[in-house]
């Protein structure tokens, strides 16, 4: 399965809660107790995804902000987005969409320098505690 070039996505804020802390994004699903860490390029992509963004925009933004980019890095990004989709962390944006603007590559609190493939780190070791502790209304 591959992502359609025109498909755009955004973070699933209905089911997940995310915070940027010390250059790391921590994402929690309070219903399942799963939590995730995104660092480096993964954190940067997550921030871009706060507004709808698609594969083409993200790869263009990476070319712009990274000093060195590996050939074929687009496959890493597509696989990463697929993983985020599989976990439900991002959702497709449907309906009429406005014109695609280049992603903002200036507002970043870190300089990734050379490209490194984004990694999603998933943790399931605290499911029960998180579900029990964070009582849902």
């Amino acid at each position: 399965m591959t992502l359609a070039a025109e498909q755009r996505f955004t973070t699933n804020d209905d089911e997940f809660s995310s915070e940027l802390i010390d250059r790391e994004i921590i994402v929690i699903n309070f219903d399942t107790g799963n939590y995730y860490s995104l660092r480096g390029m993964a954190a940067r992509i997550w921030q871009w995804m706060r507004c709808p963004a698609g594969l083409a925009e993200i790869t263009a933004a990476i070319r712009k902000c990274c000093s060195e980019v590996e050939r074929g890095f687009e496959r890493d990004i597509e696989a990463f987005l697929m993983e985020l989709l599989d976990e439900g962390l991002i959702v497709g944006v449907s309906g009429k969409q406005g014109p695609v603007e280049p992603l903002d590559t200036s507002r970043h609190d870190q300089d990734t320098g050379a490209y490194a493939a984004p990694v999603l780190e998933k943790y399931t070791d605290m499911q029960e505690l998180i579900v029990l502790d964070a009582i849902q209304e």
Partner: peptide, 22 residues
């Protein structure tokens, strides 16, 4: 009035706790 609900506005503390543990 359960604590987890009462302090909904402080939910980011969970993220800090997990970040520190990582």
């Amino acid at each position: 009035n359960n604590t987890g609900i009462r302090w909904r506005s402080e939910r980011s503390h969970y993220h800090r706790v997990l970040k520190d543990a990582l």
